[in-house]
């Protein structure tokens, strides 16, 4: 290809190789330094269960589990996540660790359009790992960064509350 103007290859075209463990598997990809983790997950890795809602960390739609904690993937560049272990809704579903939460959300219709749901589940999962029996107020407080336009939240609180109780009673988790 002759006649290619090398100056057209500006900084935006440069990529960096990053490696993660995503949903239990080693992954390497080339990302632009300005690419956010949510874009990398959704576009490069085709993990579209993680959503971009506000792109400023206010709505919770992009939450993923990164090194064991719920993290806004829209507030992080993909290069910053180099070396991290990341679980998205797809991986959490396949491993079965949130199956009881998903079943309870389904039973109580704690979702409508479903766009906030993966982020809600990631956050609920983290809450129940940290607090075995949260009160309804603690559940609402834990979800204070998860926006849902459809449900009015009550069914989501009910579902998390029910799972917490079932887990504490033992054998409740399915």
């Amino acid at each position: 290809m002759s006649g290619f103007d090398e100056t057209l290859l500006d900084d935006a075209d440069e990529t960096v190789r990053v490696r993660f463990i995503v949903n239990g598997r080693k992954v390497a990809c080339e990302v632009a330094p300005r690419e956010t983790l949510v874009d990398c997950l959704r576009n490069t890795l085709e993990l579209t269960g993680t959503h971009a809602g506000c792109e400023m960390g206010a709505c919770g739609a992009c939450l993923v589990q990164l090194d064991g904690r719920a993290v806004h993937s829209c507030l992080m560049f993909a290069v910053q996540a180099d070396g991290a272990a990341i679980n998205t809704i797809e991986g959490l579903t396949e491993s079965g660790v949130i199956a009881d939460l998903q079943a309870e959300f389904h039973r109580r219709n704690a979702l409508q359009c479903g766009f906030c749901t993966p982020g809600m589940l990631v956050n609920a999962h983290e809450l129940l790992l940290q607090v075995a029996q949260p009160s309804r107020e603690e559940i609402r407080d834990a979800l204070s960064g998860n926006y849902c336009r459809c449900t009015g939240y009550e069914a989501i609180v009910d579902a998390i509350d029910a799972v917490a109780k079932a887990r504490s009673e033992g054998g409740g988790a399915t």
Binding site: R42, L47, T48, G49, T50, H51, A52, T88, I89, E90, T93, Q102, F105, H106, R107, N109, L111, C113, G114, F115, T117, P118, L121
Partner: peptide
């Protein structure tokens, strides 16, 4: 009765136009 189509959304398998 629960919505039959909601399980996909709970598993992150929604197919939104943005996807």
């Amino acid at each position: 009765v629960p919505r039959p189509n909601a399980k996909r959304l709970l598993a992150g398998r929604g197919r939104y136009i943005s996807d």
